[in-house]
């Protein structure tokens, strides 16, 4: 299993390194950025990284595009790449588009209600609502739970 880290190993897995980089970047943006649109962009990068992972694993060394010749005679010597991951990623792209459009629609509504799409501002607004609720409803049990 352990074959040591050689130059070939590093270069041969270039697209996987890129997958790791892209995935971590995307996830980091989702967590660290305060702007909701930027969060959605990060989420998109995260999802795109997965597409890269699947497409990479579908590649067969020396394989050609998985399209059968038009006359229908398949040469058994021809190596084809695996088309299944490509098909799966078509579905994943559709899911990604649906998620992104829904997220953007939600951001529009959030902007309408809160007047901002920055996490900090929304957090402050919600803290204010929560504090008001505590003042109004908190003292049900004796001295209250502030």
């Amino acid at each position: 299993m352990q074959q040591g880290v050689s130059w070939e190993y590093l270069v041969g897995h270039a697209n996987y390194w890129l997958f790791v980089l892209l995935m971590m970047t995307g996830l980091y943006i989702v967590v660290a950025r305060g702007n909701f649109v930027k969060k959605v962009i990060g989420l998109n990068m995260f999802q795109s990284a997965v597409i890269m992972l699947y497409i990479s694993m579908g590649k067969v060394a020396g394989g050609t595009a998985p399209i059968f010749p038009i006359h229908g005679e398949i040469d058994p010597a021809t190596v084809y790449t695996n088309p299944l991951p490509h098909v799966l990623m078509l579905t994943a792209i559709v899911v990604g588009i649906a998620t992104t459009s829904l997220a953007l629609a939600l951001i529009v509504r959030i902007r309408e209600e809160y007047g901002t799409i920055e996490e900090q501002g929304i957090w402050e607004a919600e803290q204010e609502i929560a504090a008001r609720e505590r003042r109004q409803y908190g003292e049900v049990f004796g001295e209250g739970s502030q």
Binding site: V30, K39, L43, F46, L102, A103, L106, I110
Partner: peptide
């Protein structure tokens, strides 16, 4: 309650992250 919107957005971020982790695992 307008907080439903931010909640739904957070749910979307976390749910999508979870689903994407799942797809990576399947991969």
């Amino acid at each position: 309650d307008k907080r439903a919107l931010t909640t739904a957005f957070n749910y979307l971020l976390m749910g999508t992250t979870g689903a994407t982790f799942f797809v990576i695992g399947i991969g």
